[in-house]
Simulated scan of single mutants.
Amino acid sequence: MILVADSGSSKTDWLLNVPGQEPVEYFSDGLNPYFLTEKEIEKKIKSQLHPLVAQSQKVTEVYFFGAGCSSPDRHEMVSNALSAVFPKAFVSVDSDLLGSAYATCGKEKGLCCVLGTGSNISFFNGEDIAEGKHGLGYVLGDEGSGTWLGKMLITDYLYGQMPADIHAQFKKQYHLDKADVIKNVYQQPAANAYLASFARFLNEVRHTDYGQAVLHKSFHDFIDSNIKTYPEYHEYKCHFVGSIAYCFSDELKALCSRHRIHVGKIIRKPIHDLMKFIVARG
């Protein structure tokens, strides 16, 4: 049986290809090796995926595509953890960007953008992704992501820069004060996921002038700092993966059109398209 995983900073989607049946989907926390040790990754898999782990001896191939898996040392951490859980399987670990490129570009050249909890971009040459300058994480980068949007909302709220009615709505919903925010951002783990959790508020104020301004500013930041750094960006399809791109696709497509960006696929998560690619590739 073939197992494919797509892991972001917040969650991991798993898809098990069972012969003669529909693929079975599982879910766990994000398994980013920049935030977790090898043993912690192994422990999370075993504790959160009991039905899958129960079939571990039957899994023959594991293809894991994850955030934080681009460097050799982090790659090895995840590979070792997976091998401990699936001892009879061939294990392949690559970056989430490559997985997203397989799911969107297939075998064609193009740009692949991730807009989820974090953000990133890569150029796919039809076989592999070219090494890029981006993917700096939520402290230095993540433009246009859920973390970026959450940061914009929280700072506007704390600075008193939200319109009065939206400020009152945000306050009623989250009951935040400065001390809470400082503690969660600077003293607790997974600050990026904490910040990104506020992005869903934009769904509620999406059609207000304020909501539109925040979305346009965020996507404009991503286009300027990511897409436009590729001089020939207008010559290729630009695909998007992730909850932010999917949920706010209308605003994203409108802004891309203004910048002569040829939008290709926009998918919420790549796991199903990724499994099709892996199986078809053989």
Rank of each mutant, 00 (worst) to 15 (best):
M1Y: 07
I2P: 00
I2W: 09
L3N: 01
V4N: 01
D6R: 01
S7M: 09
S7G: 01
S9T: 14
S10C: 06
W14I: 03
W14P: 02
W14L: 03
N17Q: 07
P19D: 09
Q21P: 00
E25Y: 10
D29G: 10
N32L: 04
Y34K: 09
Y34H: 14
Y34S: 13
F35A: 07
E38P: 03
E38R: 11
K39M: 07
E40G: 11
I41T: 03
Q48A: 01
T60V: 01
F64I: 04
F65A: 05
P72E: 09
E76F: 02
E76H: 08
V78I: 14
N80Y: 07
S83F: 06
V85T: 08
V85I: 14
K88I: 04
F90S: 15
V91S: 01
V91F: 02
V93K: 01
D94S: 15
D96A: 08
L97I: 10
L98C: 05
A103L: 01
G106V: 11
G106H: 09
E108D: 14
G116Y: 02
G116Q: 00
N120H: 04
I121P: 00
F123L: 03
F123S: 07
F123I: 06
N125F: 09
G126A: 09
E127N: 14
A130Q: 11
A130L: 13
H134R: 09
G135Y: 02
L136I: 03
G137H: 05
Y138I: 02
D142N: 08
E143P: 04
E143W: 06
S145T: 05
S145Q: 10
S145N: 11
T147D: 03
W148V: 02
L149M: 12
L149Y: 04
G150M: 00
G150T: 06
L153D: 12
L153N: 11
I154A: 06
T155H: 13
T155K: 14
L158F: 14
L158E: 12
Y159I: 06
Y159D: 15
Q161I: 06
A164L: 10
D165H: 10
D165K: 07
K172G: 13
Y174I: 12
Y174T: 14
H175M: 12
L176H: 07
D177Y: 02
D177K: 11
K178T: 13
A179S: 12
A179V: 13
I182F: 10
Q187V: 09
P189Q: 10
A191S: 12
Y194V: 03
S197D: 10
S197T: 13
S197I: 15
A199W: 04
N203T: 07
E204W: 07
E204D: 15
R206E: 11
H207T: 15
D209R: 14
D209W: 08
Y210M: 04
G211S: 07
A213G: 02
A213D: 10
F219G: 00
F222I: 02
N226F: 15
T229R: 15
Y230P: 04
E235F: 03
K237E: 15
V241R: 00
S243F: 02
A245N: 00
F248R: 06
E251H: 12
K253Q: 08
K253C: 15
A254K: 13
A254E: 15
A254W: 01
R260M: 12
I266Y: 08
I267A: 10
H272Q: 14
G282F: 11
